[in-house]
């Protein structure tokens, strides 16, 4: 079901944590709210669920205005970071609890529970208690409880962050498949940009209560709307070097990069991704830098260099071999570089 947030705000006294959030989530869409902890993304999700009151603005789910409707009438399902399994109920009772509340007939309830459990491969664990399950299995119970009553919207609050790295990867894939299969609109909150990039149809990046950009993952990666988004997405993060624009090039402390079409500017943040640049000899490079440290990760080497005050990270192949404090040159692929206003952090276009 379509979910619309229209200029939603949340304040606690004088503290405003969500500052005018506008989102239009299409039916069946998987939208990921991404941001650092405390940026207001969880609050936004809880407002959609109805656990927090909406200070200002309106919320539509489907055709209905849900701004002030109690959570239980919103027909949303939520998966919590802690899974929120009821420790005194079996897996089957946990999954069936929402249906029991709706006074579903027993036979129907049982078949629905079994169907939901089968979807997440839990059919053999129905009589266990939550404490007898592994972290991944608990996660599945929480998912099964969410899907058992076919809600209008799935809400997920960092559901994978309590799992270890390996399991998280596997669950991610499963979650994506499950959502596609069920076709239920999903709002997913995370601080993990990899989760956001892999799961989302669209990613909404938030910072300090303000929505920075909403776009498909590839678009977010290639064309970040703000310096914050640019730094937040990608690992290692996009390099940002302070410089100035004039005469078709960006001048930084130790060199310059030719960049056509930009209006002259006193100070800009010049950004380029680690894979969009390469190390050359100090004499021939566009910029001159000093090697700060090198980290070999197996398939590649992450080289951190210093340009004046700024650190720049470059991806090199695994055979790269240079010592710290040696001088190098850095070449940048001009069409992949992005410029941001130094003060506002907003993207500067040609």
């Amino acid at each position: 079901m379509r979910v619309q947030l229209k200029d939603i705000r949340k304040s606690y006294g004088s503290l405003e944590v969500v500052k005018g959030l506008n989102l239009d989530i299409a039916e069946g869409e998987f939208l990921v709210l991404l941001g650092e902890s405390g940026c207001g993304k969880s609050t936004a999700l809880r407002m959609i669920a109805g656990l927090e009151t909406i200070t200002e603005g309106s919320l539509m789910i489907g055709e209905r205005n849900m701004t002030e409707v109690l959570p239980k009438y919103r027909n949303v399902a939520m998966v919590f970071q802690s899974y929120a399994l009821y420790p005194h109920m079996t897996v089957a009772e946990n999954i069936g609890y929402p249906l029991k509340l709706q006074k579903t007939p027993k036979a129907e309830l049982q078949s629905a529970v079994l169907a939901a459990a089968t979807k997440v491969h839990l059919e053999d664990y129905l009589e266990r208690m939550p404490r007898q399950l592994s972290g991944g299995q608990r996660q599945r119970v929480a998912l099964a409880r969410a899907i058992v009553r076919t809600p209008s919207v799935f809400l997920m609050d960092e559901p994978l962050s309590n799992l270890d790295a390996k399991l998280r990867g596997a669950m991610r894939a499963e979650l994506k498949r499950l959502q596609a299969e069920l076709g239920i609109t999903t709002v997913y909150v995370t601080h993990d940009q990899i989760e956001a990039m892999t799961l989302a149809h669209r990613v909404a990046v938030m910072d300090a209560g303000v929505l920075q950009q909403v776009a498909p993952p590839k678009e977010i990666y290639d064309n970040p709307a703000t310096r914050f988004v640019a730094r937040f997405i990608g690992s290692p993060a996009m390099n940002i070097v302070t410089g100035s624009v004039a005469d078709g090039r960006v001048t930084v402390e130790e060199g310059a990069v030719p960049l056509e079409g930009y209006a002259p500017r006193e100070r800009v943040s010049f950004g380029f991704r680690p894979e969009d640049c390469s190390l050359v000899s100090p004499e021939s490079g566009m910029m001159k830098a000093r090697v700060f440290s090198t980290e070999m990760t197996g398939n590649e080497t992450i080289v951190t260099c210093e340009i004046g005050q700024d650190h720049v990270v470059v991806r090199e192949d695994k055979d790269f071999d240079m010592k710290p404090d040696e001088w190098v040159g850095i070449d940048v692929v001009p069409e992949k570089a992005r410029l941001f206003d130094y003060d506002s952090g907003k993207r500067v276009h040609t």
């Binding site: 489907g62 055709e63 209905r64 205005n65 701004t67 002030e68 209008s152």
Partner: peptide
């Protein structure tokens, strides 16, 4: 703000 409810209820509506 008073709750405003639209009365049109779709098939999937709760």
């Amino acid at each position: 703000m008073a709750p405003t409810r639209t009365d049109r209820i779709g098939e999937l509506d709760p």
